[in-house]
């Protein structure tokens, strides 16, 4: 109690200089702290630059040896040292496209369901389940796909397309990828749809719109930017996903229009073949595939982010 009545020390002359000292050391603290956080922030940019430089340098001999043939060649052989990446590029694109075709309607459906149709009591559990789906490691998807569901896939494919279909195929990989990207594609429109058009939605209902009409005319357009961006993010993930695909795609270096046949992807062949020292130039060539994959996914992600950010800014603006 008595301390309350003691005059505040800072008003005494003797303490003024002390205060100034403290101010100086405080400024120093501020500056040191800023520097520390800045360094941390720059680490991320440095890492990205490091990834580009290190992998590209390492892959350079393969690019130089292969030239344009690296991208257009269809044989990949360590015996003859010919490395053509076209089958991998083909497989990567095909599996990713299958995944997108399957995942986009499902994801949008989930997002719309959660905002407009879902009974409130179910909303929390369903969001939790979708998050859980996202949390399953990709190697587990691969394990389940190859050991538990290989025969299921094979039976179904054969029933539909004929006896040649294989349970480990581009289509299998596409289906597994679709499950893996549903949570990604769902999350962004979910945010967008949930935050934007509360009043648009009400205004539509007040004009006598049915639920589907409200979804289609008021909610989907408002979320369209976010949806486009989310689809591209999903595409980026599908292009780069490695382990699950490596287990279920069948690992056959070929270009086949039949998606129920085994194939390969860039990430698949890296994961299954790259075993380090003593590989000769194939090691550089695999690294080269990594660089190509990196560049493609960076391009897709940059584009996706630009779209998403623009959509988010627009939503924040109105």
């Amino acid at each position: 109690m008595t301390t309350v009545r003691t005059p505040s020390p800072s008003v005494l002359p003797a303490h003024r200089t002390d205060g100034r000292n403290r101010a100086r050391s405080g400024r120093r603290l501020d500056r040191a702290f800023s520097g520390l956080t800045l360094t941390a922030g720059l680490t991320i940019l440095a890492t990205l630059v490091g990834v580009v430089l290190a992998t590209a340098t390492f892959a350079w001999p393969a690019f130089r040896a292969g030239g344009i043939g690296f991208f257009t060649g269809t044989t990949w052989s360590s015996q003859t040292n010919t490395f053509g990446a076209l089958p991998m590029i083909y497989g990567t694109v095909v599996t990713a496209v299958i995944a997108i075709i399957l995942a986009v309607p499902a994801s949008l459906g989930v997002a719309l369901f959660l905002t407009e149709v879902c009974p409130r009591r179910l909303r929390g559990p369903i969001v939790a389940l979708i998050d859980l789906l996202a949390a399953i490691p990709s190697v587990v998807f691969g394990l389940v796909g190859v050991l538990a569901f290989h025969n299921v896939f094979q039976t179904v494919f054969r029933a539909i397309t004929g006896p040649k279909a294989n349970g480990s195929s581009l289509l299998t990989a596409g289906i597994i990828l679709a499950f893996m990207i549903i949570p990604i594609i769902t999350s962004i429109p979910r945010e967008g749809i949930a935050t934007v058009p509360g009043h648009h939605r009400e205004a539509s209902y007040a004009l006598g719109a049915t639920r589907w009409e409200v979804l289609r005319t008021a909610i989907l357009p408002a979320g369209s930017g976010g949806i486009t961006g989310a689809v591209m993010l999903g595409l980026g993930r599908a292009l780069g996903e490695t382990i699950a695909v490596a287990l279920v795609v069948g690992s056959a270096i070929q270009i086949t229009p039949d998606i129920t046949q085994p194939g390969t992807t860039m990430a698949e062949i890296i994961a299954n073949r790259f075993n380090g020292e003593g590989m000769g130039i194939e090691r550089n060539a695999l690294m080269g595939l990594g660089v190509v994959l990196f560049m493609i996914t960076i391009a897709v992600n940059v584009a996706a982010r630009v779209v998403v950010n623009r959509a988010q800014r627009r939503n924040a603006g109105t």
Binding site: H199, H200, E202, A206, L207, G208, P221
Partner: peptide, 18 residues
């Protein structure tokens, strides 16, 4: 839906669609 067709509503803040 049938109710809202006949009983319209205007809200506190203007809600034009974009």
């Amino acid at each position: 839906v049938e109710v809202r067709r006949r009983i319209g509503m205007v809200f506190q803040r203007p809600t034009p669609f974009p």
